[in-house]
């Protein structure tokens, strides 16, 4: 099956003019995201998340390596027909209204004129901005800007959605709505790549995650396998009587295995993230 995003051996070096030292933002990054997958890119500030997203969108070029979007080289303009992008702290033309902003982006995306009006109405309703459709963006709150940003990213019904900190500045209820929207997009087969600092949010919506640190992908894989602890096993029993559990405990005690707890604790994504990034500091 054709991958949605394939990043092959991408290295990005930023060279400041008149300075000898160069900053390596990404080092030999390899990443594949399957169609319909929700992939979370995690990493502390300066880890290379934004650089990765910008390279995917062809806003900057990699120093080495290549990127393909649904099999097309990402530098080809046509590759971006499949992509919707929500930048971090989305800024748009503040003199336009919400509806005008969506119409502007519909034109840029090549959405047929006949479909634009219905799509704009539909998306304004989806992100809960129908009442604010004719208000200028200069009067929007940060959360509303983020929601109109999400709507413009979805205007042309893209197969791939790239979200940079999608819930930044959004209140908990709005944040939950965005998570639900991501889940519904996944159900409709849309591939989602999101970068976020909010680990619990990533844990809730992502199928796979990658942890970037200092330009290197330190850990990557399905969420469940990353979070599981190798030498421990969790049995989830339904309707188990105390006698059965006691019997199991006794049986375990008679072997070399050791029962740690009746309900095995699972490492949180946050613990994993901190463990992975802190271990490289040492």
């Amino acid at each position: 099956m054709q991958t949605a995003i394939r990043i092959s051996h991408v290295t990005k070096v930023y060279r400041a003019p008149f300075r000898r030292r160069a900053t390596v933002a990404l080092r030999d990054l390899n990443l594949e995201i399957a169609p319909g997958e929700v992939y979370g890119l995690l990493g502390p500030n300066g880890s290379g998340k934004s650089t990765t997203l910008k390279i995917i969108l062809s806003l900057i070029s990699p120093t080495r390596g290549s990127v393909t979007i649904f099999g097309r080289d990402n530098s080809v303009v046509a590759a971006r027909r499949e992509i919707g992008f929500l930048p971090e702290n989305a800024y748009f033309h503040k003199f336009l209204t919400g509806a005008e902003t969506l119409r502007f982006h519909a034109k840029l995306s090549g959405l047929p004129r006949s479909e634009t009006r219905a799509r704009v109405d539909e998306l304004l309703a989806t992100v809960g901005l129908t009442d604010a459709r004719d208000a200028r963006l200069s009067t929007y709150s940060k959360g509303m800007l983020q929601r109109i940003g999400l709507a413009q990213a979805l205007i042309h019904n893209p197969k791939l959605l790239v979200l940079d900190e999608p819930t930044a500045g959004v209140d908990p209820a709005g944040s939950r709505d965005i998570q639900d929207l991501i889940a519904s997009l996944r159900n409709r087969g849309t591939t989602v790549l999101l970068s976020s600092h909010l680990l619990t949010q990533v844990q809730e919506v992502c199928d796979r995650v990658g942890i970037l640190h200092r330009g290197r992908l330190l850990r990557e894989g399905p969420l469940q396998s990353l979070l599981s602890i190798e030498n421990q096993t969790e049995l989830v029993l339904e309707n188990a009587s105390p006698d059965l559990l006691d019997g199991l405990e006794q049986q375990i005690a008679s072997t070399s295995a050791r029962l740690i707890a009746r309900r095995k604790a699972q490492a949180s994504l946050e613990q994993l993230f901190l463990h992975v990034t802190e271990s490289t500091e040492e």
């Binding site: 969108l57 303009v77 971006r80 930048p87 982006h105 840029l108 995306s109």
Partner: peptide, 12 residues
Amino acid sequence: DRVVYSVLAKPV
């Protein structure tokens, strides 16, 4: 203002 990001991320 980063307006350019949302514009050039489209097929422009």
